[in-house]
Amino acid sequence: MRVETIGDATLYLGDCMEILPSLERVAAVITDPPYGISFAAQPTKWQRRAGQKPEAWDDAIALDINALRALGDVQIVWGGNYYDLPPTRGWLSWFKPDAPPSMANFELAWTNQDRNARQLSVSIGATNAERVGHPTQKPLALMRWCVEQAGSPSSIADFFMGSGTTGVAAVEVGARFIGIERELKYFDIACRRIEQAAKQGQLFAPASKAPEQLGLEAA
């Protein structure tokens, strides 16, 4: 295991289930685990042109997702529709107006919030400039929105950090961040991105909401 500390961010290279017992509770878990759909195993034409090779890390869903999400008061799990999670009405949706026919028009995030569902429209093309090579990289605008939906919490954990987009969003609102990633090349990318964000400093003022305002469920 390798640990990097960058400002208020602590980043772990390793298996999240092995690291979990050493972690303290956080205000929000905002994470994007594997969906089990083997998307990374089938790079698109454009990904292949950029040098992307087939990868197997999303061939199956993550185990023990409930143990991981339980570490946070607010819980947002992208791809939650692929997992056995408690019923909720507080779904989040990312609508992709320019999605090609071979891709879904939207993605869903499960939350433990008993509140109205919410949707954000962000085009895939609009994020081209920020791409760093991760095949399922989420737009930074989307993860900033997730942080906002979570009430701009003071501490955030992402157990499937990937290229570090959730961590960058956390740094931008001045939140403490815990990130875990087991793939070395993506861990190194995340470290660089979060370090760059830390150098820029906090960009957005936090607007934390009380748990009752977020409609948190007990599950």
Rank of each mutant, 00 (worst) to 15 (best):
Y186W: 15
R25G: 02
I61S: 03
Q47N: 00
N128R: 08
L20E: 04
G151N: 09
Y12E: 15
I124S: 10
N66Q: 15
S123C: 01
V3R: 06
G179Q: 06
R48N: 00
G7S: 05
E217G: 13
D73E: 14
L11V: 10
N116R: 12
W46F: 05
E24Q: 14
A170E: 14
W110I: 08
V122M: 00
P21N: 05
I189V: 12
W78A: 10
R176W: 02
K138Q: 09
Q200L: 10
D15F: 06
A170D: 14
S155N: 02
A117S: 14
S208A: 15
R48P: 00
R69T: 13
A99L: 04
K209N: 03
I194N: 13
D114P: 07
A129R: 02
L184V: 08
I156W: 10
D98V: 02
R69W: 09
E183A: 13
P21I: 08
S93R: 11
D15A: 04
E130G: 00
G80L: 12
V29G: 04
L216I: 08
L71D: 01
L184M: 10
A109K: 01
G125I: 01
A150H: 08
A50G: 06
E183Y: 05
A210H: 12
V132T: 14
R115K: 11
A50P: 04
A210Q: 13
S163G: 15
G162P: 11
Y35L: 12
A169T: 09
N128A: 12
S102Q: 09
A99S: 14
N128M: 05
P86Q: 02
T111Q: 01
G79M: 03
I30R: 00
I65H: 03
L214C: 08
I180E: 09
D8S: 11
G201A: 02
S154W: 03
F95A: 13
E148K: 00
A126E: 13
N105T: 10
M103S: 11
R176P: 07
G80V: 11
R89F: 03
A60S: 13
G14I: 14
E4A: 06
G79Q: 02
E18H: 11
T127R: 01
A62I: 15
A67F: 03
I61P: 14
P33D: 06
K53Y: 06
V122N: 10
A117W: 09
Q202T: 15
D15R: 04
Q137N: 09
D15S: 11
K199W: 07
Y82I: 00
G90L: 05
F95G: 08
D32I: 10
Q137S: 07
P87S: 01
G133R: 02
F177G: 13
V26C: 07
P87A: 03
M161Y: 13
Y35H: 11
E183R: 02
D158Q: 11
Q119D: 10
P211M: 05
V171K: 04
G215W: 04
I37C: 10
N105A: 08
Y83V: 01
M1C: 01
